[in-house]
């Protein structure tokens, strides 16, 4: 693997993990009694930036390197289904995340104090943030699964 693809893989993992962590932090803010709006705005913005960064780094790695060099290894491993089931699911679920992340940022930044006054809006926004966090965690676990299959195939 060239150093470019190594770096892209590393940034894909770190930014994705960071983005998910910021959305989990945003969820913790939402769950508290008193809403700290400034913290919520910062967490969602950094979370969305992390996810988009991870998307770009992972997307470049996936479209230029994975198919040629990694997919054959997975297919040669004890878990050839890992490509079709885990990787294909991961890459396509990943398409949701930047859109959901940007929607969360817009909702939090534009509704502002409405989130404090309207419990229904707060609950619905918290649900969206929870979904982003859960999908982020699921994608991270699928990443571990795919990497494991690569190890078996080497």
């Amino acid at each position: 693997m060239t150093s470019l693809f190594q770096n892209l893989l590393i940034w894909h993992i770190l930014l994705g993990l960071g983005g998910t962590a910021f959305f989990i932090a945003a969820l913790v803010v939402m769950l508290r009694d008193k809403l700290r709006l400034k913290a919520l705005k910062t967490h969602t913005l950094l979370g969305a930036m992390g996810i988009i960064g991870s998307w770009i780094a992972g997307g470049y790695y996936y479209t230029n390197y994975y198919g040629k060099a990694v997919k054959p290894l997975i297919k040669a491993s004890d878990y050839p289904w890992a490509h079709k089931v885990i990787m294909e699911t991961k890459e396509h679920i990943f398409l949701f995340l930047p859109i959901l992340g940007l929607t969360a940022v817009l909702t939090v930044w534009l509704s502002g104090d409405l989130l404090e006054k309207e419990p229904k809006l707060r609950k619905a926004t918290a649900l969206l943030i929870l979904t982003i966090a859960l999908l982020g965690v699921a994608i991270a676990l699928m990443g571990v699964g795919v990497s494991g299959a690569v190890g078996q195939g080497v």
Binding site: L9, I10, I13, L14, A140, V144, S147, G151, V154
Partner: peptide
Amino acid sequence: GFGFLILYRVVAPELGLLY
């Protein structure tokens, strides 16, 4: 923990520790 994942994936994937 994910640092280990990166390390194994980039440096020594043949160890197969992730399963």
